[in-house]
């Protein structure tokens, strides 16, 4: 390929990558493989509403107090998973519960039920009001409310 044409192709490719990358921000999951907007830590979390999970029973054994989501890494590591990857599902399930969207609740809770296939477990989905910095200091939410209770079992 002649050099001048190659230069044009490369600039068009980079421009296309830039445009398509930014367009993926509007996609459902925020990216369309293999394009990505590279929006990482763009929005600063503020004091406000969020959703989280608490595990109330593992392998049939009731956890009292429940295991907060931020202490579940050992459970996830046993199944070679990262808990961080589940935060979008937990958030979406929380939103579906808050708006009573039955089909979304079924779909998302089914995805979470595939976790920890070696034993039964139960969990609550919570709506919380919190300030990230205050939570880091005190480990307490400003307010919290259980939106739903689910059980997972080996399929």
């Amino acid at each position: 390929m002649p050099y001048s044409i190659a230069k044009g192709v490369i600039f068009s490719f980079l421009a296309m990558y830039f445009v398509l990358g930014f367009m993926t921000s509007f996609a459902q999951k925020g990216e369309v493989y293999p394009f990505f907007s590279w929006s990482l830590f763009s929005y600063t979390p503020n004091k406000g509403e969020a959703f989280t999970m608490e595990i109330t029973a593992v392998g049939g054994k009731v956890q009292n107090p429940p295991i907060a989501f931020n202490e579940t890494r050992p459970l996830f590591e046993k199944i070679s998973q990262s808990p961080t990857q589940y935060t979008p599902i937990i958030r979406d399930l929380g939103i579906a519960l808050a708006h009573n969207k039955t089909s979304a609740i079924d779909l998302l809770s089914k995805k979470l039920s595939l976790l920890f296939p070696s034993g039964r477990f139960s969990y609550d989905i919570l709506r919380i009001e919190y300030d990230p910095v205050e939570y880091w200091r005190s480990k307490t939410y400003t307010t919290h409310e259980v939106l739903g209770t689910f059980s997972g079992e080996a399929p």
Binding site: F41, S42, T44, P45, N46, N70, T72, T84, V133, W136
Partner: peptide
């Protein structure tokens, strides 16, 4: 992202998510 203190909020918010 341009506010003073924003980085503290980002880190504090991600610690529970990243564990």
């Amino acid at each position: 992202a341009l506010s003073i203190g924003n980085f503290s909020y980002i880190v504090a918010d991600w610690i529970p998510k990243l564990q």
